[in-house]
Amino acid sequence: MLRRSFITAATLVGLIAAPLAAHAAETLRFAHYANPSDTAHKAAELFKTRVEELTGGELEVSLHPAGELGNSPTMLQGARLGTLDIVLVGNPYFTSFAPQVNLLDLPFLFQSADHAYAAMDGEVGEALMSSINKSNLQGLAFWEIGFRDLTNNTRPVVEPADVEGLKLRTTPNPAHIEAFRILGANPAPMPFAEVYSALQTGTIDGQENPVNHIYASKLHEVQKHLSLTSHAYTAAPLVMNFGRFSRLTEEQQAAVKTAALEAAAYERELNAEESATSLQAMKDAGVQVVETPNVEAFREAVAEQTRAAYVDQFGDELLIKIDALVGK
């Protein structure tokens, strides 16, 4: 009698547990490069909230900021292999397997943020995301790092000649590396997570990133000079492992894409708001700022040569489309 009761109870527990297990939330691991104070992490928090809301809790998102699960190349490789579900890294890290996206990093390609958004949110962005999707990834949306400015510990940078001889951390993007070589600098590509210590120890003289990103990452603590060159714009594609994405229901896939686009728009707003406050905060901290460097001289020095190298490899179709979007 006792045995029969035990079996009945066990059966009941099994019957109750089965539907609970069937409806247990799936967790998506989302890794990225940014510090928790950075706008990219704030956008990631919104993405998490919206995915969980839109799926009614069927999907949960765990956030892993600041290179917690590896540096940018490692995280991106993890997304391709499926050891990570969702990854956000700068556009240059896609160049090794989707070199066409190098287009977005060409120096002085975009005249304004609106110009960049018109390109990424339209046909150009679709074409570039398609090239990324060929490498076991599902592109979700173009987030951003933004327009890049130059910092260093050696001297103010006003003219192109002021860059000569500086050892500068750059992204691994070929256009970035070539541009600084043309200017006479010594470009030193390295993962972003290593930049602070490299500046602190003097391994490199400087680096280049958007103002709000520089401040959020505390690079101003180990840099004396900032020059507002806005020499390049860097996108940050938000991508997901293709196999993981394909196993989601159609409703869940739509929710993830919707959340990605909403968070991209939110990040853009935050970046616009925080650029001015970040600049003032760095001035207050003692960073010497060159607000009006000779941008035209920089453009004349590097833009044509770096564009020519891209056209030789990929043609000028997308470049023509980007140029046609000026002012639209």
Rank of each mutant, 00 (worst) to 15 (best):
R181E: 08
L279E: 05
E304N: 09
Q288Y: 07
Y310Q: 09
A198H: 05
S275R: 14
V311K: 15
Q305V: 09
A303M: 13
H220I: 03
A236V: 03
I177Y: 04
L318T: 09
H220F: 12
I322D: 03
V311E: 14
I320M: 11
P187C: 06
F180A: 02
P210V: 01
I320H: 10
G286A: 08
E178I: 02
A263K: 03
P187S: 08
P210K: 02
E291A: 15
S227D: 04
Q223M: 05
V222R: 06
V302G: 03
Q288A: 11
A308G: 09
S230I: 00
L270E: 07
L183A: 02
E273M: 05
V195Y: 00
V290L: 05
E267A: 04
G315F: 11
E267D: 07
D323K: 13
Q252Y: 08
H213Q: 12
L226A: 00
T292H: 14
R181Y: 03
Q313W: 03
Y266Q: 12
V290C: 03
I182Y: 01
I182C: 03
L279P: 00
I182P: 00
H225I: 07
E304G: 07
V287E: 01
G315N: 13
G206K: 01
R244I: 14
N294P: 00
P293F: 05
Q253E: 12
N212A: 09
K283L: 05
R247K: 15
E269D: 14
F192H: 04
G243P: 00
Y215A: 07
A285Q: 07
K257F: 03
T234G: 10
Q313Y: 04
K257R: 15
N271Y: 04
M190R: 11
A303I: 03
A259G: 04
M240K: 10
H225L: 03
Q280H: 13
F180P: 00
Q207D: 08
D316I: 05
A185L: 06
L319E: 05
A198K: 08
L248C: 05
T277K: 14
A265I: 07
L270Y: 02
A297S: 14
M240W: 06
G315Q: 12
Q280D: 12
F314W: 13
I177C: 05
T249N: 11
